[in-house]
Each structure stands twice: as C-alpha cells, then as structure tokens.
Design a protein around this nucleic acid. Structure first.
Lengths: 340, 340
DNA sequence: CTGAAAGCGCTTACAG
DNA sequence: CTGAAAGCGCTTACAG
C-alpha cells in the first residue's frame, strides 16, 4: 500500500498525491477531494520513514528534560510522541543532567545530526545550552521559558488567564475577602498568576487584595498562611500559587480549627499529586502539558518550511489551562466568622 | 555522513559496514575493529529512517497503555523511547480506552501496518486484545502479564525476590514478629510477594507468619492492620503488599499511639507518590519499569530475526527490583512493648 | 566470509 | 497548477 496505489485509485500522478498529503497547496480542490477519497477508501497510511528519508525537514528531534516531576514528564512525552509519530519525526530523549557538564548530552545529539530540539524550562533558560544550540545553528522550541524574548519559538501556558478565572470563580461563589499567597519572586508564571488575580479582583470592584509572599514550598505556605490569617482575619478564601502551598494552607486552617471549605476555601495551581491526596482534595488548575508538547513538535515541523525572510518573526503559542474544582472550595459561610 | 563514508574510512565495502552495524555476524574480527574505529572517528550515526525503509524488521511499534499512574507511564515511555530511538524504531502510542470498544485503537494501528506491540498489563491480560493480535499475526511483548504461559515474550519484575529481600532486611534489623498484609487474591504479583516473604521467614527459621488479607486499597489496609494488631499484638513490623496499605498501617499505628518506626516498622511496595508524601516516609521497593520497557523493545527487535523454528521457545525476562529504605523502618525497640 | 545491483516509499528539484 | 526523473541512506537478495 503505497502512494502509487492511491494515485492509481484517484486517477492522478504520484506527485499530486504527495502534494495533497503535504498540505494541499497548489492542487485544485476537486483533485484534492479525489485524493482524500482514495486515501480513505484504501486506508492508506504514509510511510514516515520514507518521508523522513526523502524530505528535507528535520526528521529527528531531541527532547531535553531535567528532573521534572513524573506527572509532567509523562504528559510531555505522550504529547510529543503522539505528534511526532504522526508527522514521522523520530524523538530522542536526553536528560540534561543538572550536575556536571549539562551541555554534554546535547552536544552529543548535535554531533549525531539532530538539528531540532524541544526545550522545556529550565533547559531553555540556561545560557550555556542556548549558546551551544545557536553555534550549531539548531532550531528549538522553548516550553514555558522564563524569558520569551530570547526565543524564536515558544509554547507556554496561560497563567494570567487561568488565575483570573480562578479568582472570578471564587467571586461567583460569593467570596469577597480573598487572600493570595504568591510564588517565588523570580518565577514568571507566579507573576502572571498574581497579575491575573489582581485583574479579576479589580474587574469585580474589590479593592482589598492582600498578598503574602511564598516560595512554592510547603513550609513557605505554612508561614504565609499564618500571616494571612493574622493580618486578614475576615478572609474566606485563600488562593495559593501552587498546590504545595495550598496543602500547607489547609493544614494551617485545620490547626486553627477551621473547616475547609466551610470556614475557608483554599485553592492551588498545577494539579500535582498532593492536590488529590490531601483531604479535602484541592481545587486547582492544570496546565495543558501534552498539548504544549504537541504544539512544540508541530512548530518544529512547520518551521522547516519557513523561508529566511520569516526569520525575524516570532511564534509564541499560549495555551489555556483547565480549572479543576474539587472539595476544598465552596461558598463562604453565611454567618459572619469569628476569629481571634 | 553516510555508511559509505565509514566504508571508505575503514577501507571496506558498504555491505561490510552494514553487517557489522547489524550485529557483526559473518564478518571477521579484524574487519569489525576497523569498522568500529571508523564509526567512532567519524562520529557516524546510522540513519534510522533509511534502515526502517530498507529493512524487513518491524520499524513501528505500538505501545498500548490503559490508565496507568503517571509515574509508571513516564518511566515506561522514557525506557521505551530510549531503546527505540537507539534501534531506529518508531514508537506509536495508543491509549486502550477501557470503556467502549477497547480494541478499536489497536485495530486502527494494525490496519496502518504496525505489526509489533508492547502490551503492559492489563492490556496483555485482555482476551479480546490478544485475539485481535493473533488474527493479525502481530508480535507482542507482555509486560507484567497475569498469565505468563499465554505469551511468547514477556517481561516482569521479580516480586518474589524483592519480597524476600524486604523480609530478610527486617530480620537483619532485629525483627522476629512480622505481620504481612496481602494484596488482592487475584493478583499474581501479590501472590509472588507473599511467597517471597514466607520463603525468607522460613529460611530464617521463623515459624509464626501471620497474614491478613488486604485488597490494595487504603481502606482495606486500615481494616487489615487493625486485625493484625489485635490478633498479633507482639508484632514489631508490618509488611504491606503495596504503599497505599502501608500508609494505612501507619495511620492505624498513629491512632494507637504507636511511633513509626520506633514502636512499629511499616514497609510497602511500588514506591508510589504516597510513599514519599506521608510522614514518616515509607520504606518500599521500586520496579525497574524503564528497564522493563527497554527490554520489551529489544525483544521485539531481535524477534524479527528469529526463524520459524524458534517459534515454540518462550522468552521470559524477569528483572530485579530495588529496595528503598526510608524513615518508616528501623530496629525494633529493645524494651518489650506493651499493648492492650 | 565479502561485494555489485536493485529497491524500500517517499520528496526534491526541474520541466511544462 | 501538474508530471517524469533522480535520489534520500540504508538493506535485501543474489553472486562469488
């Protein structure tokens, strides 16, 4: 079952089939239809090895990861794998060992002919990695980079949007006294989430927006929550910038004999395992990791068709997150709460 | 940089290089050395697309998974991906949706020409899946199958061995009164672990081996532990057949005001996230998932070189697990413990 | 044990 | 907008 069979069934030349299969530019609509019909009828599948061998685009892509959580990695890999097997690209994994010489592995890939890379943060934030890739004239797509400006291609999650939606949802539930526990000051995602939160509060006309500084750790969440409850006793909801700090907030609430969510709503971000394990399970938000990886592979694929003229254009994909409502959020108690 | 460059550098024909690269059969040792030297010197990497296109072995392998934990999936994928990119096989993922028609996805792969599959349990235990693959004359490697006998190729973790080592370790620490909380009666791994435990107990000359039936859930662990403490009050260590039940045992111990591990050692199996999250962190054992996946891919690759004469031989790989000692295990308290 | 020929299934130029 | 030719980098037969 080859492209020639399809061509024969459709009554066109092999080239026409190839063109249609590569995007259908330069082929008239009626011919395209005939080709697609033949493909469907014959249940034809393109031989990706043949395409990779004959084609000029990158056929191997290196995926560089450094100690991510297993949940992140599994989603990243499923997304990248599905798209690359669809496009006929061979995915090669490499762990960017953070110790020792972190560029050694990438250098080995480069030497073996890999020219296209998917670089999830923090690999895409490392100057030595980028320097190496630039020198080798390799192409890469950054995933969740700290600095968008230095990358020709990037894919990120929309932290601003999801934080706004999270806040808006709490307001819908009836909350008016909402405290925010921020993430590390250096994190771009953390900053975006805070911005999204403040924007939603402003949109709802809520003036008082207490923020305590956290650092993404459980311990920092503990401290920030204590401060929040002391300085803002009327608060009915706490938004923590990640799940670890949200879990800490729940723990502090329990210590204060507050029921979650009856006395205090607590929400987090990232949908890490802890969010499902603790009781009550935490309302949180998921990043579309698999889609981000798919998108990165697709960018690498189409990038090979770009002319040098396009070289200055930047492609920045921003994908939406999903809100996951679980047990830790609910409407505020009607009766005014008393707290020391 | 092609195989011809290597041939020129080594002063041999292209065919000789190809033979050496495919395993070195039928090529004299001195020639092989020259070829390898040239490969190394030129930093040559085989073009996997070309091999796949020209070769006769399976070049695409389908990996069928059904709702595994993300930790399992990420390890499975990294292992499978590393090996397949090394061997030049294209990995295609497919989720065997447990609802609806679970064979539909596999059927689609089959129709698209995929002839080799990696089937982690429970996909490899499903009669309809196996029937489909047999009819299509596809090859597959089962990972952790419930029934070894029905598979030509399988890869499993050595549950018997690791359970024995776990028990032996507790005995080394000084424990003599060890209770075992079994897993579901239908699970082959659970049975193996119990067997390994009993074997190690017998080897140490310990006669009393209380076993309570569990069902792998936290809830069942709670009940089994209560029964164990009631019927076997002198016990200083509990081995639970997985981490969820071990976490439950710790919870029950705390309820009884027993310190873990001072008053009671608790260990689990599988190294799931809960083992690291609970306090104290649980001593457990990891299965070599990535290695199992690698091994499966390798089997599929070599299987394509088998003659039909070998068809009756079975290849069953059994890989060792790793013991991970954390905080929930320690020597038993010297003073005799009192318990109601 | 080693080599010259043909071909895997596509895509890239190059013509019309 | 469509097609005939050449070739991607390997491996498979088939000879020696």
């Amino acid at each position: 079952m080859t492209i020639d069979d399809v061509a024969a069934a459709a009554g066109v030349s092999r080239m026409t089939v190839s063109r249609v299969l590569r995007g259908g530019h330069l082929v008239r609509a009626p011919l395209q239809e005939r080709v697609f019909a033949a493909v469907k009828k014959l249940n034809y599948r393109l031989n990706v090895s043949a395409r990779a061998l004959a084609g000029s685009g990158p056929s191997r892509v290196g995926l560089v990861y450094s100690n991510p959580s297993q949940a992140f990695l599994s989603e990243l890999l499923t997304g990248a794998l599905k798209e690359s097997s669809k496009l006929g690209m061979q995915l090669t994994l490499t762990a960017d060992a953070e110790t020792h010489d972190r560029t050694a592995e990438i250098d080995a890939l480069l030497r073996s002919g890999v020219q296209a890379f998917v670089l999830p943060s923090p690999a895409c934030d490392a100057p030595d990695v980028l320097k190496l890739l630039r020198e080798a004239q390799a192409r890469w797509v950054a995933i969740s980079p700290a600095n968008l400006e230095i990358h020709r291609f990037s894919v990120s999650a929309d932290h601003f949007d999801i934080a706004g939606r999270m806040t808006t949802r709490l307001i819908e539930l009836g909350h008016r006294h909402i405290g925010f526990i921020a993430g590390s000051a250096t994190s771009k995602g953390a900053a975006e989430r805070l911005r999204g939160h403040l924007r939603a509060m402003a949109a709802a006309g809520i003036k008082k927006c207490p923020v305590e500084q956290g650092a993404f750790t459980f311990q920092s969440g503990l401290e920030a929550t204590e401060k929040m409850l002391a300085s803002f006793p009327e608060c009915t909801a706490i938004i923590a910038c990640n799940d670890d700090m949200a879990a800490a907030a729940i723990s502090v609430a329990h210590r204060h004999h507050l029921d979650v969510p009856r006395d205090l709503t607590v929400v987090g971000f990232d949908d890490t395992p802890i969010a499902s394990i603790v009781s009550p399970a935490i309302t949180t938000a998921r990043q579309p990791i698999a889609e981000m990886a798919q998108s990165a592979i697709r960018l690498l694929h189409t990038a090979s068709n770009l002319t040098s003229e396009d070289d200055n254009k930047r492609t920045q994909k921003v994908l939406p997150c999903t809100l996951i409502e679980r047990e830790s959020s609910g409407p505020p108690r009607v009766a005014a709460r008393l707290r020391a």
